[in-house]
Amino acid sequence: MNLLQLINIEVVFEQNTNNETVVFADFNLEIKKGQFISLVGSNGSGKTTLLNLIAGNIIPTKGSVVFAQRDITGLKEHQHSHFMGRVFQDPALGTSPSMTILENLALAEAKGHSFGLQRGINKKRLDYYKTRLEQLQLGLENKLQVQVGSLSSGQRQALALLICTLTPIKLLILDEHTAALDPKTSETIMELTDKIIKKQGVTALMVTHNLRYALEYGDRLLMLDKGKTVIDANNAEKDKLRVQDLVQMFSEFMEERPAISNLKVIHLAT
């Protein structure tokens, strides 16, 4: 069953100006329930735009976004959050820095309920929060009263991931969510992400610059170039792919369009 359908999508930035950029023209994508997709592509190929489109951050100039058989094109970004969660590249975007871990989790758990004058923090939930934090294995369970702004970016990203998935969501969007972390932390967060996705059985769409992650994790691989899907590999096909194959394909696209630098991709792939 399809969880998400992008139908005949067109995205044009600054339409009818000199700076007009067509990112997608008649783009189509179907995401099945339960899939874990890794999405790769050179800089400027439209990955972030695609995620923004799904998250409701931008509205397509043409076409429709259908989520669980419902047309959600044009819904506000915060309305999309009712059924999806997103972890950003910047760990700061997923948490409230001046508030404590406890307050951040209390807020996260209230998602979907009314934000009225009831007590913000329910003491009875403390044990539950601690259990969830323990699963991150970063020692955060002993830091409930610590301000999130004082945590390391890896800890913050792990917390952002937890906040995102504390209440049930149907789709998890990951936008290069390990790119701002050092290699070791990046690895930890990636493993954690995989664990959470598997445990909750949530459908996931992950943009990554790390080709190894793209092959190692997930059960479907997409490569985007100039707003077009150039690879759509299912699990079996994906297993046969190797990092070198992807690098090879990247460089082929690069030769066609040398103006776009892909150093970052090559670098991370090695």
Partner: peptide, 16 residues
């Protein structure tokens, strides 16, 4: 308090 700190978090919590 969250909205002054990080409006994106408020959006993620499905609030305007």
């Amino acid at each position: 308090r969250a909205v002054g700190d990080n409006p994106q978090l408020v959006i993620s919590l499905a609030q305007n």
